[in-house]
Measured scan of single mutants.
Amino acid sequence: WKITIYDQENFQGKRMEFTSSCPNVSERSFDNVRSLKVESGAWIGYEHTSFCGQQFILERGEYPRWDAWSGSNAYHIERLMSFRPICSA
């Protein structure tokens, strides 16, 4: 599993790669995730830290803005603060 997060939209700004769970992006000096690329595996992104709040399934691909992973939710969530890989047995 591999995911790359960015602190600006369209894959700009600070970037960081992960191959395992991140319970709080702010502990990695990110205020928020504004864009991301899922390089391999599937991940679950969460609205809040500690894997809480609205969940987003993140499959392999590029997500240049928050609405790319938020989709058409009843209330739009511009925040992604934690994530972890989906492990299959």
Results as ranks from 00 to 15, higher is better:
44 I>R: 05
34 R>G: 07
2 K>A: 05
34 R>S: 05
38 V>K: 01
55 Q>T: 08
32 N>I: 13
52 C>W: 06
71 G>M: 12
44 I>C: 15
52 C>S: 14
86 I>G: 07
62 E>Q: 07
9 E>Y: 05
47 E>Y: 00
56 F>C: 15
55 Q>G: 10
75 Y>R: 14
72 S>Q: 11
20 S>T: 12
58 L>F: 10
89 A>Y: 06
1 W>S: 14
68 A>M: 08
71 G>Q: 14
18 F>W: 04
41 G>I: 01
57 I>Y: 07
68 A>Y: 14
75 Y>N: 15
88 S>F: 06
78 E>V: 13
48 H>P: 00
28 R>H: 09
53 G>I: 03
49 T>A: 15
74 A>F: 11
62 E>V: 09
85 P>G: 02
44 I>F: 09
49 T>D: 11
49 T>S: 12
72 S>E: 15
20 S>W: 05
68 A>C: 13
52 C>H: 14
80 L>Y: 00
64 P>Y: 04
22 C>H: 03
39 E>H: 15
88 S>V: 07
77 I>A: 13
55 Q>I: 03
44 I>W: 09
26 S>W: 06
85 P>E: 04
66 W>E: 08
39 E>C: 07
32 N>T: 12
28 R>L: 10
2 K>G: 04
78 E>W: 08
59 E>A: 10
10 N>D: 06
43 W>A: 01
58 L>W: 02
14 K>S: 10
77 I>P: 12
49 T>M: 08
66 W>T: 10
10 N>V: 02
6 Y>R: 00
45 G>D: 01
40 S>K: 09
12 Q>K: 12
83 F>C: 02
73 N>E: 14
81 M>I: 03
87 C>R: 12
55 Q>S: 14
22 C>Q: 04
81 M>P: 04
29 S>W: 05
13 G>F: 01
14 K>T: 11
43 W>N: 01
26 S>Q: 10
60 R>V: 15
6 Y>M: 00
80 L>E: 01
60 R>L: 12
87 C>K: 15
19 T>D: 05
25 V>S: 04
85 P>N: 04
18 F>T: 02
20 S>H: 11
83 F>D: 03
63 Y>T: 05
83 F>V: 03
78 E>F: 07
12 Q>M: 09
79 R>F: 07
35 S>M: 00
79 R>S: 14
63 Y>F: 10
29 S>G: 06
32 N>S: 12
83 F>I: 05
18 F>Y: 14
13 G>W: 01
61 G>D: 02
37 K>F: 05
13 G>S: 01
31 D>G: 11
75 Y>W: 10
70 S>H: 11
29 S>T: 07
45 G>W: 02
19 T>E: 06
28 R>D: 09
34 R>K: 09
46 Y>R: 02
39 E>F: 08
77 I>T: 09
87 C>Q: 14
60 R>S: 12
88 S>D: 13
13 G>E: 00
70 S>N: 15
12 Q>D: 05
45 G>Q: 00
85 P>R: 06
10 N>M: 07
69 W>L: 12
83 F>N: 05
42 A>G: 08
47 E>R: 04
72 S>H: 11
